[in-house]
Amino acid sequence: MKNTDLIKLPFSKNNPILVQVLGVCSCLAVTAQLKPAVVMAVSVTVVVALSNLIISLMRNTIPPRIRIIVQLVVVSTLVVLVDQVLKAYMYDVSKQLSVFVGLIITNCIVMGRLEAFAMVQKPWPSLLDGLGNGLGYSVILIVLGFVRELFGSGTLWGYPVVEKLGLYNIGYENNGLMIMPPMALILVGLIIWWHRSRNKDLVEQ
């Protein structure tokens, strides 16, 4: 596989959420607003990319039977670092994300890339693969955060868009369903629907 594909494919035919259907839990939980969604997206991207790199560097010294434990140690170290940084510099967002930063450890995308890619590939491609998958995940998270905050709360990044447009005065109301996790699942389903109708070769026979 070419190095550019490692970055490009996760955006289209190998998107972690749309095609691999991994990392769905966090994408339902943190996308009610745009800001936490973006912070989460950045955090996961950093963790996936760096853990891919580190595991790839260590791959020849890891005994196969305990590889999951070793991977977990690396991932949780990185997650704790991210958590500390967030607490230090973005305390309010960190509060909002609460337990979901810690739960990056259990994000299937991270484990999936380590197992499927970093354990058998050289460091540079591994880093690119981690970045690509992190960014592919980020795109979906940001789209969801944008749609859900705009229609659910009428704001974007905390700015009251709908109120400034004066839509409330003509009878518009925020959609309460958008803030609930089930609607995120439905939105992901709709995106998958659109994605598969564009890429027919993804449809199973």
Partner: peptide, 9 residues
């Protein structure tokens, strides 16, 4: 159900 959850008021 959509109306109930989206526009409860």
């Amino acid at each position: 159900a959509f109306l109930f959850f989206a526009y409860p008021t």
